[in-house]
């Protein structure tokens, strides 16, 4: 048996995206992640033919909507788009999300890189529920 340790990549960008999304949604003042064309097309790019044939996009897992993650040399960069509750100051919410995601990434053993947050909507929670039913993406 070799004495050399095996190299393995345990933390994928999918996992970081999941963690970032969950962390953001757990932060007070975050209503939801906001899907963008970039995140949709990135997701469609995986298994394109299957996605084009899919009859009902509502069955597509939406876990990466609004999150874009790249992992390089042990550093994780995150771009996240959110909608915030009008009862909170959006900038403070975004700051809290950024800080929490950095902590979460540190726990994976990766180094947090750039964490860019975009607040795309500021809404009343009740309005958000009525005007934006669960994303069909």
């Amino acid at each position: 048996m070799s004495d050399h340790p095996l190299e393995a990549r345990l933390i994928s960008h999918h996992l970081v995206a999941d963690l970032a999304a969950r962390t953001a949604l757990d932060t007070p003042g975050v209503l939801r992640l906001e899907p963008t064309l970039k995140s949709l097309l990135t997701r469609l790019g995986t298994g394109t033919i299957q996605n084009l044939r899919r009859a009902d996009t509502r069955t597509t897992p939406g876990r990466h909507d609004g999150v874009f993650v790249t992992v390089h040399s042990g550093i994780a960069d995150v771009q996240l788009q959110i909608a915030t509750d009008i009862g909170f100051a959006a900038l403070n919410v975004a700051q809290a999300v950024r800080e929490q995601i950095a902590v979460t990434i540190s726990h994976t053993g990766l180094t947090p890189g750039r964490i860019d947050i975009s607040v795309l909507a500021i809404e009343h929670p009740t309005t958000a529920t009525a005007a934006h039913p669960p994303s069909p993406l």
Partner: peptide, 19 residues
Amino acid sequence: AYQADQGAITISEQAITSV
């Protein structure tokens, strides 16, 4: 809205307009 080496925060014009 905020710019630092560790990342930026941006807010959409529509979000502010709705407020």
